[in-house]
Every structure is written in structure tokens, then in C-alpha cells.
Design a protein around this nucleic acid. Structure first.
Length: 850
RNA sequence: GCGAGCGUGGCGAAACUGGUAGACGCAAGGGACUUAAAAUCCCUCGACUUCGGUCAUGCGGGUUCGAUCCCCGCCGCUCGCACCA
């Protein structure tokens, strides 16, 4: 009997699939239902790591099993190829970002192909290809025409050394992540997409994804959009109105019921009234400067003391007409609501902290049940339920009715209206970067911003990175063009699009990647939505929210029909590994480590130096900690199938999996065992009748368990069942003939999604025609899986005391009789009174005694 | 601070909607084969035990014939958001 040799078998099967063009997506009407499986496409950093591999293997298990179940499967792959690292490579190594990116893509494609994934490579594209981003420019202009794209001044994080805007995530402790320079706030004219137009729809749509998206992700998106309902209203000035807000002070509140508890007004340091005051009042200017100095790190915000500045301005209370003073306060956010609030210290902790510091009145207006007129708050604001008091027309009302009453009164007086506001802001998409999709707009001194008339607007290749800043800006000719409208001298927009734009529609382009239109409607209508999307939870908000938004916007523009792009979402865990460290603090990679285990005490030694190592935390595989295992090494040592199996076998897919060499060796042993069973099959041996029947039963149980494990995304359980099933097949040495053939045939088809190369080899060895790829999924027959006898545990007062074997489906009354007649049970019950017997059919018996 | 999730052997974990806790794998121990090693195969493997049992799913209560699963209160860890009015 020959050992299974992955080294020869795997390339052999991959060549077979390639020769048959086996993974090309069926396009003609096959009459089969469609299934679109997609893994989040990678950034071409140059290397496929284990995290990628686990992600794509999961997708491949889904794709291969759906195919076997009779679906036409679309399973494409591409490259999210624009972005900063390419420019950094250009700056550091003098390579053109395009060359760097394309050579990385070539390298990664080769690595990916080793994994034996059932991908339709004919649909591959990279977002940095003008054939892709030109189409993106086309729909961008369509949204521009429809008013979903606009320009406005906005305050951005500006890195003065790199001369560029930084995303919030690129600012670490107030410094640029790359340059280390202190980040400035700068006002720039930027392009925005009106995602806030879709805020409600994006929240409401989440409801329909219940059960198909992780609750966590839906919740994160809901919080991110941050819808709140309240009252937007204007307070009239007492005395002379400041020029910056002649009509009064506009505020937003979610607690209009507490209006009678107002004791001060708070405005943000950036509020127009505050800024105007600073021009004439040096103290105010100094205070505002102080506010701006406040750090932006989390710890600093947490500890920041609430400080304020009394402007001397006063407004009139809308209900009782008293005067309320207006303060500039550091804890008011200028970007949220109107940048101004009314302070109600009794029922808001921040307001209370502020009021205590500046000795402002604290007026409780909501009291919990049972509290009297003397209800007061000390240093903790009361935010619980209760009834209104000290509140005139709202006295005695509960909070919700009081809110409605207050809003009605303000609306009747024409001082404001009920309003819903969002935390979500419009999406700023301008980046002062070369390696991105050019924004296809031409600025004309007389016509303004005009859509480019020639698409694609291609990036010029001849750029340099020797000076900081955007090379498009200083390119000698690229930006100088004629206005498409008046044909006068004009300039191109030199900002490029945020790379999240590139990834917000690629799944639609995959349905027909060479179409003349950005999205080929017929193909998109056929394949979308993506039935199963798989990727990291780190994209829970940004990427997934942007993609949902763009799908809605493009649908409304008539470019596609599906508003909710991902019908099913799965977020997979990371691949983690132990870390090893030398006494001098240097990290050591696993290939240079020898582990030993002395009666449970583990120790590590560096192979190259012999030095003792400290075994450190288990962390995400990363270059900096050197705890990386390359897929290539695993393929070389154990074969792809063992690696594919192991990344899914040891942990539930949504959880992190710890890579261990012992684990992958276990997977490799399983591969050998499967092969040994198949290779040792002797069709001539008929087998023993009862063993045959038993093997058929076990086969059908395995089909059921593995099938359910795969569809339920419990790959680890499915694999455990496969391990157990192989042992079962082996233990049924007395079974042969058709029963054994069926068992092995089912085994091969059940392992196929996980270890496809092995499965093909087995298929051929079993004498089957063609490829297992085209074989149908084994069918589970409940009648064949059922045992005719079951084991019933017998409990006495809930504790297990024994068991009996009875015919399956035996009625409770009959079971009861058998149990009571059982001598062991009788011995146990001696001297006791049986109060009750609970019999759950085919499950358990519980005798309750007193 | 707010929100969500998770706590089960030495380790990763399993247990379908409340019904035999620890499947499967790793590590460990013992044995077979071998001149030896590797590989492979077999056995043991939650704790305690007077060997009949007893205790065990973070801790303390509750509901139930029966709780890893449901409810209440703690403790711990992880993640997300973070002065959002």
C-alpha cells in the first residue's frame, strides 16, 4: 500500500482542473440556481499570509460544497490595488508604484494558486487598472450629476511633513503615523459623497439582514450611523443679538422634557458665536485656544476637565422667559447637532460636572417613583425613568409623553421642530495622493467644476516622489487641460479617491468584469446579491457600510438593481501563533525554534544559536513579532490539503485559530488515513451482513453531520465528524462490498470541500469516472441513518444511574414498565416511593423519588 | 463611561431548539514493532475516592423531574464606540 504523496498528487490535480477550465463560471442558462461566494479581496502587499489563506479556504469550502449541491457558483478573485504602501515603496526604494503593485500581484497570484482554490481566474481584475477605475469614474460622474457628490471646506488632519491629509486611523497620539510629525488641523476644500442621505435606509436595511449577518456587525453599523430623535430649536437672545447668530441660538436636544431644568447654554469653541466673540475679546480668544490645545487621544479626552467661559450673552427660556447665560464649553462638539446645547445639570452627567465647577443652578425636573418635591441630585445626574415636576404643563407626565408635549409646544410657537439627527457624516473621499483613482473633474475658472469628458482619466506614469506632496500637483502637463464646456484653459482635479471607493462596488463588477458599462445589468441582476461574503471583522463598519451605501446610490441611479449587496456575511477570526523571544529582546521566527516538552513543562531553544528562548504571548501573526508561518512552507512540508484542513479544524471559524506544528501534523495524519482506507479497498470482499448494515447507518449519519456543519459554518465540527467517520470506516473492517464502496464514496465527497486534491485522488482510485468536482453531494437518507435500538440513560432524581437499550420510538408507557422492571433500578429504589417518572422518547428517563 | 460577546480538562475545543458534560484534535504517560531512532499501531488521560461512589462547565442564588444552555446578582477577559447633548 502506497503512502499518499501530496507533492505529486496536488500539482497533478491542479493541472487537471486547469486543463478542464473547471472553475470558469457557467454563463449560459443551465437551469441551476446561482450562488455567489466572495471573500474580501486582498491588498497586494506581496505575500499571501495564513490569515488570507484561512479566509479563502473558508470561501472555497462554501464554493465547492455549493457546486456539489447543484448551484452555478460565482467565485472570483481580484486585487484592491490602490493605496499608500505603493507610494511608500516608491519613496523608499525608487520603484514606480504601478510596477511595485503589479509585481506584487503576480507574486501573490502564484502563491494563491498553490492553495487549490476553486476560483474563476478569468474574471480577475485589479482596481488600479484603468479598465476598472475608468468605470468607477463613470459612475462617480453619474452620482455627481445626481447631486450625491459635492465639495465643501472641511477640517482635516494634515501632516506637515508628508504634505498630505491623514485619515483618523493614521493619526497616532496626535502624530502622523509615518512622519511622526505633530498633526495639524487644516481647512481644505474636499469632495464628499452624500452617505447621510441614506442614513435611515442603511439602518432600516440592517433589520432584513438579521440572522444572515453577525449581530455584532449590525449593531456596530447602527451605532456608527447613530440615529437619535429629539428637538432642534432656537432660543431668542435677551438683549442685543450677536451678529454671528442674529436669529437666536440654535440647539439640539434629545431631552426636551427637561427644558425646565435648563441652567446654562453651552456652545462649542468652534461655534460661529464663539469665534466672532474671540475677535473682539482676547480672553475668549485665549480660552478657545486652550480648548483647541486639548489632546485628541482617548486617555486625554477621558481625563479632560470640563472648562467653560462665560460669554456674558444671555438667551430667554422658551417657556418661563427667564434669562439663561451662554457659555463656551470644551465638551461641546462642533460637528454634532448644532454645536450648541442647553445644559440640564440635574439629568446629564456632563452638564452636572460643569455646573458644579462653575456653581450654576441644578434644577431637577424628573423624579423617580416615590421621590418627593425635595428630590435633589448630588454629584450624580438622574437619568432614569420617572415623572416630571417643577415643569408647569408637563408636571406629572412620564418622560416620553413629556418629550412629545414639549416638542408640540415649541413647534406651535414656531421656535423649532422635532428632528432626527445622525452621528454619521458625509464621506470625505479626497486624498492628496498619486496612487489612487483620479477624481474625473476639471476646474474651469468660468464654468466651475465640470465633469471630465474623456474617460478614463488615467494616471500619468512619469511622476517622481523625491519631493513630499502629491506628484499629480506638480506634474508639468497632466493637469493642464481645456474646459470641456467652454474650451478655455482649465485644470484637472489632482486629488484621488479614497481606496474605500474602489472596494465599494467591485463585487458588482465581478459579475461581468469586461462590460462597457460600469455594471452590466443583466449579469448583475443574475448574480447579485453576493450570497455569502467572508472577511475580517475589521471591516465591520467602513467597507461594509460604504458598499451598502454605494449599492443603494447606484441602484437609485439605475446602474444596478440590488440595494443590499451582501445577503450573507461571515466574519472570520485571525490566525495567531506563539511568540518566541531571546534574552536580548529579539524576536525569533518559528522555523528557528526547537520546542521541547518535559512532562508538561514546555521550553524553547533557538536552533541557530542554541540559546534558550522565552515563550511569549499568542498573537496575530505579524512580521514585527516574527511569529509568521508562510503558506508556502506548509505546502512544501505537509501539502496544501493538510494546511487547508488545519486552519479550519481547530477552532470555530469566527474565532482565532492558533497555528501549531502539532496541529498541522494531525491534519496530515488524517489525510494519510483517508487515503489508506480508500487505497486498501477491495471490491471483491463482500463483507459481513450486520457490519454492512451498521456501516451504511454510520455513513448516513456522517453525511448529515458534515453537511449541516458546512452549511452552518461550523467547519471545525464538520471536520471532527470526518475524523470520527474515518475511524468508524476503519473499525468496520468486517464490512465490505457495496456498503464499503458507498462509505468511501461518501467520504471522498465529504472531504472534497476541505481537501480537494486528496478527494480527486480517492475518486479516481475508487474507479469513478471524471472529477469529483462534478460529482453530486451525497444525499442523507434519514431512514438509513436511524438505529433500530437506542440507549436510554436512566436518571434517579436527575443523576445518571444506569442505562437500558430499547427499540427506537418505544412509547413512554412501555419504557416506564421496562425501567421499573429492571432489577438494578429496583435495587436502587428499595424503600423509596416513586413520585413520578419522566420519559422523553428516545432520549432519557428520569425517575423522581421521595 | 456606554454597548456587545465570551469564561468548559494540561491546551484548542464539542454538546442540535433544557435531556448520558468533555466528541474530535494537540500535548503527556504506558505498550507493540525496530539493533536504534523516525514513522505507524494499541492502551490510558477532569478531580477526589474507603472503588460503592462523590464533586465538577468563572462565583453566588433561582426556575425545572432535569441547567454548560433559561432568569437574577457578582467576578474576570476580549472587542467596538467614546464628552454624540
Amino acid at each position: 500500500m502506497a503512502r499518499y504523496e501530496p507533492k505529486t498528487a496536488e500539482p497533478r490535480q491542479q493541472a487537471r482542473w486547469a486543463a478542464a477550465d473547471a472553475f470558469r463560471t457557467p454563463t449560459e442558462g443551465t437551469g441551476k440556481p446561482k450562488y455567489y461566494v466572495l471573500e474580501m479581496f486582498p491588498y497586494p502587499s506581496g505575500n499571501i499570509h495564513m490569515g488570507h489563506a484561512r479566509n479563502y479556504v473558508m470561501g472555497d469550502v462554501v464554493a465547492r460544497s455549493r457546486r456539489a449541491q447543484g448551484f452555478d457558483v460565482l467565485h472570483p478573485m481580484g486585487w484592491d490595488a490602490f493605496g499608500l504602501p505603493a507610494e511608500n515603496a516608491a519613496i523608499e526604494r525608487g520603484i514606480h508604484p504601478g510596477d511595485w503593485t503589479w509585481s506584487n500581484i503576480a507574486a501573490m497570484r502564484d502563491q494563491l494558486k498553490l492553495l487549490g482554490l476553486s476560483l474563476d481566474w478569468s474574471r480577475e481584475f485589479a482596481t488600479c487598472d484603468p479598465a476598472y477605475y475608468g468605470k468607477q469614474q463613470a459612475w462617480f460622474l453619474e452620482l455627481f450629476k445626481r447631486g450625491l457628490v459635492y465639495r465643501k471646506d472641511s477640517i482635516v488632519n494634515w501632516d506637515p511633513v508628508d504634505n498630505t491629509v491623514l485619515a483618523n486611523e493614521q493619526v497616532v497620539d496626535g502624530r502622523g503615523w509615518r512622519s511622526g510629525a505633530i498633526v495639524e488641523k487644516r481647512k481644505l476644500n474636499q469632495w464628499f459623497l452624500r452617505i447621510t442621505d441614506y442614513a435611515d435606509d442603511l439602518i432600516d436595511g440592517l433589520k432584513e439582514l438579521e440572522g444572515r449577518w453577525p449581530d455584532k456587525v449590525r449593531l456596530m453599523q447602527e451605532n456608527w450611523i447613530g440615529r437619535s430623535k429629539g428637538l432642534q430649536m432656537t432660543w431668542a437672545w435677551a438683549g442685543q443679538a450677536p451678529a454671528a447668530a442674529p436669529d437666536g441660538l440654535e440647539i439640539y436636544t434629545t431631552r426636551p422634557d427637561t427644558l425646565f431644568g435648563a441652567s446654562f447654554m453651552g456652545i462649542a469653541a468652534d461655534h460661529p458665536v464663539a469665534r466672532a466673540l474671540a475677535e473682539t475679546n482676547p480672553d475668549a480668544a485665549a480660552f478657545i485656544a486652550e480648548c483647541r490645545k486639548g489632546g485628541s487621544t482617548q486617555a486625554e479626552i477621558e481625563q479632560a476637565e470640563k472648562i467653560g467661559f462665560d460669554t456674558g450673552l444671555k438667551v430667554l427660556h422658551p417657556f418661563d422667559g427667564r434669562e439663561v447665560s451662554v457659555w463656551i464649553a470644551n465638551f461641546i462638539l462642533s460637528e454634532y447637532g448644532t454645536g450648541a446645547i442647553f445644559g440640564c445639570p440635574a439629568h446629564d452627567q456632563r452638564d452636572l460636572d460643569f455646573a458644579r465647577k462653575y456653581d450654576l443652578p441644578v434644577i431637577p425636573v424628573v423624579r423617580p417613583e416615590g421621590a418627593g418635591d425635595d428630590f435633589a441630585v448630588a454629584n450624580e445626574a438622574y437619568t432614569g425613568p420617572g415623572a416630571l415636576f417643577h415643569s408647569d404643563f408637563m408636571d406629572g407626565m412620564e418622560i416620553e409623553p413629556a418629550k412629545a408635549a414639549a416638542i408640540a409646544r415649541i413647534e406651535a410657537a414656531g421656535q423649532g421642530e422635532g428632528a432626527t439627527i445622525y452621528r454619521l457624516r458625509d464621506w470625505g473621499v479626497s486624498r492628496q495622493r498619486y496612487w489612487g483613482c483620479p477624481i474625473p473633474v476639471i476646474h474651469c475658472p468660468s464654468c466651475g467644476a465640470v465633469p471630465a469628458d474623456q474617460l478614463p482619466v488615467e494616471l500619468p506614469r512619469d511622476v517622481t516622489f523625491d519631493v513630499p506632496g502629491n506628484p499629480l500637483d506638480r506634474h508639468p502637463t497632466w493637469k493642464h487641460v481645456k474646459c470641456p464646456s467652454c474650451h478655455g484653459d482649465a485644470t484637472r482635479e489632482t486629488d484621488t479617491l479614497d481606496t474605500f471607493v474602489d472596494s465599494s462596488w467591485y463585487f458588482a463588477r465581478f459579475t461581468d468584469p469586461t462590460a462597457a458599462d460600469p455594471i452590466a445589468k443583466a449579469a448583475a441582476d443574475k448574480w447579485l446579491p453576493v450570497d455569502q461574503y467572508i472577511g475580517g471583522v475589521e471591516h465591520a463598519v467602513l467597507h461594509l457600510l460604504y458598499a451598502r451605501f454605494i449599492s443603494r446610490a447606484l441602484s437609485d441611479a439605475g446602474l444596478m438593481s440590488v440595494k443590499e449587496p451582501f445577503a450573507g456575511l461571515f466574519t472570520q477570526g485571525m490566525v495567531v501563533h506563539e511568540t518566541y523571544r531571546r534574552a536580548d529582546g529579539a524576536w525569533v521566527e518559528p522555523t528557528d525554534v526547537e520546542l521541547s516538552n518535559d512532562g508538561g513543562r514546555r521550553s524553547a531553544r533557538q536552533l541557530s544559536t542554541g540559546e534558550a528562548l522565552t515563550i511569549g504571548d499568542i498573537e496575530k501573526m505579524s512580521k514585527s513579532k516574527k511569529n509568521v508561518v508562510a503558506p508556502q512552507e506548509i505546502v512544501d512540508t505537509y501539502g496544501v490539503d493538510a494546511g487547508r484542513l488545519f486552519v479550519l479544524s481547530d477552532s470555530p471559524p469566527e474565532r482565532d485559530v492558533q497555528w501549531t506544528s502539532g496541529g498541522v501534523e494531525g491534519a496530515s495524519r488524517f489525510v494519510q488515513r483517508v487515503w489508506a482506507e480508500v487505497d486498501g479497498f477491495d471490491p471483491a470482499a463482500a463483507g459481513d451482513e450486520s457490519a454492512n448494515a451498521s456501516l451504511v447507518r454510520e455513513t448516513h449519519k456522517a453525511i448529515k453531520a458534515v453537511s449541516e456543519g458546512i452549511t452552518g459554518f461550523r467547519f471545525n465540527s464538520a471536520i471532527a465528524k470526518l475524523y470520527a467517520f474515518v475511524a468508524t470506516v476503519r473499525d468496520h473492517g468486517a464490512a465490505g462490498g457495496d456498503a464499503r464502496r458507498q462509505a468511501l464514496s461518501a467520504l471522498a465527497r465529504l472531504v472534497a470541500p476541505f481537501t480537494p486534491h486528496l478527494a480527486e485522488e480517492c475518486w479516481t482510485r475508487l474507479g469513478e469516472e471524471g472529477m469529483i468536482l462534478d460529482a453530486p453531494w451525497p444525499v442523507y437518507d434519514p431512514a438509513l441513518a436511524a438505529d433500530d435500538e437506542v440507549t436510554l440513560p436512566i436518571q434517579v432524581n436527575g443523576k445518571r444511574r444506569g442505562e437500558i437499550r430499547v427499540a427506537r420510538g418505544l412509547e413512554p408507557a412501555a419504557v416506564e414498565a421496562i425501567v421499573l422492571a429492571d432489577p438494578e433500578v429496583q435495587a436502587r429504589l428499595e424503600g423509596l416511593t416513586v413520585k413520578k417518572i419522566v420519559v422523553v422518547k428516545d432520549r432519557i428517563v428520569n425517575v423522581v423519588v421521595g
